[in-house]
Design a protein around this nucleic acid. Sequence first.
DNA 1: CTCCTTTGTTTGTACATACAAATATAACAT
DNA 2: ATGTTATATTTGTATGTACAAACAAAGGAG
Lengths: 155, 155
Amino acid sequence: MSCNYESDDQECKLNGCLFFTSTKLAREFGKIADEAFRKTGFSPSHAILLYHVNLTGGIQQKEIGEILHLTPSTITRLLERLERKGFIAKKAEGKNVYLCTTPEGLAMQSEIIAAWNQLQDKYKDVLTEEETRRFLEISNKLLKSLDNRKSDKKI
Amino acid sequence: MSCNYESDDQECKLNGCLFFTSTKLAREFGKIADEAFRKTGFSPSHAILLYHVNLTGGIQQKEIGEILHLTPSTITRLLERLERKGFIAKKAEGKNVYLCTTPEGLAMQSEIIAAWNQLQDKYKDVLTEEETRRFLEISNKLLKSLDNRKSDKKI
DNA sequence: CTCCTTTGTTTGTACATACAAATATAACAT
DNA sequence: ATGTTATATTTGTATGTACAAACAAAGGAG
């Protein structure tokens, strides 16, 4: 609103900004998630990637990137480690690369799920089920709008 | 809930997870913010840091880190560039380092504010004022709970 | 069959961020 | 005054993420 430099609204400006609020929030949730997944030996992102490959064996990187909202290059980078450590195998068939489960990877699935459930429990320390529901509802709606925005631009 | 590996609930698991929802959201908002601040030549984080130093001249790094929810080391790193390019000056007085405005930095303030306002406008493309309000309300409440959680642990 | 385009993946590079350890200075106790 | 503790900052290192450019393989057009 105002352009005067010495106004006293620092807090308002920040807390009223979707960008800063959402990044702060993501970092805080990230810490809780790190904690929860630590005992699996994976970062949250790695854990979820592995989880999804276990669920949907033979999937392509592009597809999984879309599910997780991650760029192809990010997927490549995340896979580097999972592949090196033998949790996921790449089967190249011509141009296409399919992500396949391995025994080692499958063996982690139950641990990942356990950590994930534990994560949900931790959230309960911090907000009620109703609040969680409302937050997720708005967020997902928002994400959908943002996706549309993206498609609109392409046209 | 279930531990069977071939369930069809990938989307639910993800969309129902506060961590993934919030990180995805933060990345999307981040892109919009990058765009909005691009013409200032600053990343959103740099822009806000400079904005705050302009507002509260003579502030200490620790304090600004608390306002922005950023670690001291992150502040150091962000300042490196702003100082090198002459937008902020450090005045060391014994142990304490105070962040001071420079003419170059002050000159950017109105541009930063303009970009910020423009950012708010972009949000309006994507959600109504009412939705924004609700989202921010829950988020800020959440952030407060998470802060308390942190303090609780220390005790 | 050769050239061009499309599609999926990887590589190089950069950025915001954090943690842990190092450093520097001040403050306090004896 | 000396040694210890507390506070603020920096440095080294690592992570997740992205973008742009490179690469590779496939499929069409001539």
